[in-house]
């Protein structure tokens, strides 16, 4: 782990690394460095993107993207000195204008994750051609996973307003 840490620090500027648990390496990087780091890690053998996640830091007015990357190729001779690692690559983007570049050219399986984040957090991934609805049926004013989306108010407005077909009192009598 320390070897990879050093390599990352020497090749990219402005990144911070930390070891979270036994097998977890956290890397926070500026926006521009994310795609080069990911392709660098892919060439190193860490070629399984297991998740793209997002955290809403509402007080700092930023969204944090988290890319979780791991490797299955430990047993291969070519990557024999790789450790079994989870790498968490974090970057922050602005909340008002949430735009980022797509990861699809590097990791193809990023497409559904990006569609999901587009739907639930309203992030626009530049270059992803398929940002169509995935899970949700209707349009929301604020994307529903952001912290300022008030679910209770929404439920009151949307579902509680629909009336029962007939009064329940008559049924029981």
């Amino acid at each position: 782990m320390n070897k990879l840490k050093k390599e990352l620090k020497s090749s990219f500027k402005g990144i911070r690394t930390g070891i979270l648990e036994d097998n977890r390496l956290a890397v926070s990087a500026p926006k521009d460095a994310v795609l080069p780091i990911l392709s660098f890690l892919k060439n190193k053998g860490y070629e399984h993107l297991s998740l793209i996640s997002c955290v809403d830091w509402i007080e700092e007015k930023e969204l944090e993207l988290v890319y979780v990357i791991t490797s299955y190729l430990q047993k291969n001779d070519e990557y024999a000195d790789n450790e079994r690692l989870h790498i968490l690559l974090k970057t922050r983007i602005s909340r008002e204008n949430p735009e980022f570049k797509t990861l699809v050219p590097i990791f193809k399986n990023a497409e559904p994750y990006e569609r999901e984040l587009h739907e639930l957090f309203g992030i626009n991934f530049e270059g992803n051609k398929r940002l169509t609805p995935l899970l949700l049926e209707r349009a929301y004013k604020i994307p529903p996973f952001r912290k300022d989306f008030n679910t209770r108010e929404y439920v009151k407005e949307k579902f509680d307003k629909i009336s029962f077909v007939e009064e329940k009192k008559n049924e029981r009598a």
């Binding site: 899970l135 949700l136 049926e137 679910t151 439920v155 579902f159 509680d160």
Partner: peptide, 8 residues
């Protein structure tokens, strides 16, 4: 209080 689940 879910945003996407039918209540009744």
């Amino acid at each position: 209080d879910s945003y996407n689940t039918i209540k009744h």
